[in-house]
């Protein structure tokens, strides 16, 4: 556990979470959520939970981003809040 690296990733996590929720464009919101998931994966690799990091990179960041983009293309891109 490297404390300074840890703190930088955690601050970026909060920033990306807030950005993903404030964007009006749902496609951009899904992409920022993918960035959030990859940052989470990096944090877990750094916290020496490598198995969780693998699963998050494939399932959390990969599959959930893809299905969210598929839903945005099936429905609408605009959001009011």
């Amino acid at each position: 556990m490297i404390p300074s690296f840890d703190i930088v990733i955690l601050i970026f996590l909060v920033v990306t979470a807030v950005i993903a929720l404030t964007l009006k464009d749902l496609l951009a919101s899904a992409m920022v959520l993918g960035i959030y998931s990859f940052l989470m994966c990096l944090l877990w690799a750094e916290m020496s939970a490598v198995d969780v990091a693998f699963t998050e990179a494939t399932v959390g960041a990969g599959v959930s981003t893809v299905i969210m983009i598929a839903t945005v293309y099936q429905t609408t891109r605009k959001s009011r809040d």
Partner: peptide, 10 residues
């Protein structure tokens, strides 16, 4: 949040 996708992001 009022948008359903935003609720799921949350």
């Amino acid at each position: 949040k009022k948008n359903l996708i935003k609720k799921l992001v949350g």
